[in-house]
């Protein structure tokens, strides 16, 4: 019988660092960005005790810039480390849309879920969606930062498009982050959650749901002391 405490390492510390630095900086960018919209004074948030700072544009602008520095660092780190280590398992593949639909149907109780690799097809699509939006936000955001300096004053029409593409991508990313979190409403996905905090997921779950990836790991069936294989260190949970 399988040991339910046995775990498999799904994310190295580098991936955890990338995920959380992107996540935290993005949350700060959302909060400070909506402050710049401007929304907090308009909707009375500034009247809530402890939130009067949210209507101060100097504070929210500085927060926005600081979080953008972290995001730019994290994104370039992620791109560079993925290229250098040739890690492309998060990139979408042919047939991912169809496979995602099959996974969603299976979670709703219709049909059998297809075998998955390290990432589910829907995770690969979500990654692309979020990555494209983040890149649009970074490019338009950097143009906006340059515009805020003395040195660069683009034309009115260019400013209009850059500003509103930035705004549209913000809402598209917010929708993507919402979808990313809503995925955990489904019980089937919840066993992935520990992975993004500790790096480890339940071995039995990986075997069942990420069988294509699991097959690539040389997991001994009879012992809790598991060796490191193909960069994926297998350990025993608490």
């Amino acid at each position: 019988m399988a040991n339910p405490k046995k775990t498999v390492k799904r994310h190295c510390w580098s991936n955890l660092f990338t995920h959380w630095s992107v996540a935290i900086s993005t949350i700060v960018l959302f909060i400070s960005g909506f402050g710049q919209m401007p929304m907090y004074a308009r909707y009375g948030f500034t009247k809530i005790p402890g939130f009067s700072w949210s209507g101060n544009y100097k504070i929210t602008l500085n927060l926005h810039y600081a979080a953008a520095i972290v995001l730019i660092f994290a994104v370039t780190y992620h791109l560079a480390v993925s290229l250098m280590r040739k890690e492309f398992s998060l990139l979408p593949r042919r047939g991912d849309l169809r496979e995602s639909w099959q996974i969603i149907k299976a979670m709703l109780g219709f049909g059998k879920e297809p075998e998955s690799d390290k990432y589910l097809a829907e995770q690969r699509i979500a990654y692309l969606y979020i990555a494209v939006n983040v890149m649009i936000l970074l490019i338009t955001g950097i143009i906006k930062v340059l515009k805020n300096t003395d040195f660069y004053q683009p034309g009115a029409s260019f400013i209009f498009w850059v500003s509103n593409i930035h705004n549209a991508a913000t809402f598209a990313l917010l929708f993507g982050v919402f979808g990313h979190l809503v995925a955990f409403v489904f019980k089937d996905n919840r066993k992935l959650l520990p992975g993004i905090f500790t790096g480890h997921i339940c071995c039995e779950y990986a075997k069942h749901r990420h069988s294509k990836w699991y097959c690539t790991l040389d997991v001994p069936e009879t012992t809790d002391q598991l060796p490191a294989v193909q960069g994926e260190i297998l350990t025993v949970g608490d």
Binding site: Y65, A68, I69, V70, I72, F73, A74, V75, T76, Y77, H78, L79, A80, V81, M84, I142, V145
Partner: peptide, 14 residues
């Protein structure tokens, strides 16, 4: 500092 963030990111990745 924003200009240096990508350089720092690439260096850390290296």
């Amino acid at each position: 500092q924003m200009l240096f963030a990508p350089i720092a990111g690439i260096f850390a990745a290296g």
